[in-house]
Design a protein around this nucleic acid. Structure first.
Lengths: 127, 127
DNA sequence: CTGCATTAAATGCGTCTGCATCAGATGCGT
DNA sequence: ACGCATCTGATGCAGACGCATTTAATGCAG
């Protein structure tokens, strides 16, 4: 069938694009800012959301990360002083995650690196 | 700048496509055939290459996997009896990796799963 | 109020990965 | 022949992930 090979070709292009960009991003963010790609993505979600909601769940839903992985990611960020966790007052099971000033700053720095890697490695039309 | 947001949008689409497909692939291959995605990719490379060459290096180059990860992947496959490692006669540093019949069979079975997941999850034009 | 199912997040555990290093094989210059 | 730089693949180690389980807070039924 013709469709099969087309499918495989598209998948291989996707793999290639993703792996190239992700590998460079991971390295650049780690070397330059001490952040995992997941760390950065998490900060990024927090920057663009100033509303007050039960974060952990919300974040997990917005990211391709398991609940446990997100929990540990936030723990990492907290240990670096980039976010603060606080219990929800009305439902003490929920956890608020909030950026600190340091977190906002770190994100701003890392964002530059992030963009430049994308500009360098993300092919214009994953051809 | 306009280009920045376009770049970010394309990256997010790439992330989304990749993560969706990869997660489903990983799960389906593991549950149905006891194979990691890397395992399958490795078998796949071997099926389509019947020539005789120093494989480890060749494989590593063809895959988005570090040398050490490939080494362990091949070790996993060998433990399952899907490939055989043998020293190169002329340069005993090199290692030949060869599919066994079991390996060929496993790959054929897994390939069906692989294709069906791609058909289900790989969006036609990563829109 | 008590008991039990449910939900949120944390954690134990095993797996896969990359980096750095190691051990063995080559092979080239002297 | 010897020694040293180089190359190939394996391995120690630490980090991140997912799954399953645990702990704590809710809340609904009786």
């Amino acid at each position: 069938m013709e469709a099969e090979s087309a499918l495989i070709t598209r998948w291989q292009e996707l793999l290639s694009s993703y792996n190239t960009v992700a590998a460079h991003l991971e390295r650049a963010l780690q070397d330059g800012h001490g952040l995992t790609l997941s760390d950065f993505e998490t900060l990024d979600r927090l920057v663009t959301r100033d509303c007050e909601k039960r974060r952990m769940q919300e974040l997990a839903a917005a990211m391709y990360l398991s609940q446990s992985a997100l929990s540990r990611t936030v723990a990492r960020l907290e240990k670096q002083g980039l976010v603060v966790r606080s219990h929800c007052v009305d439902d003490r099971r929920g956890i608020f995650v909030e950026l600190t000033e340091a977190g906002r700053l770190r994100h701003a720095e890392a964002r530059t690196t992030h963009l430049s890697v994308l500009a360098d490695r993300l092919t214009p039309a994953q051809a």
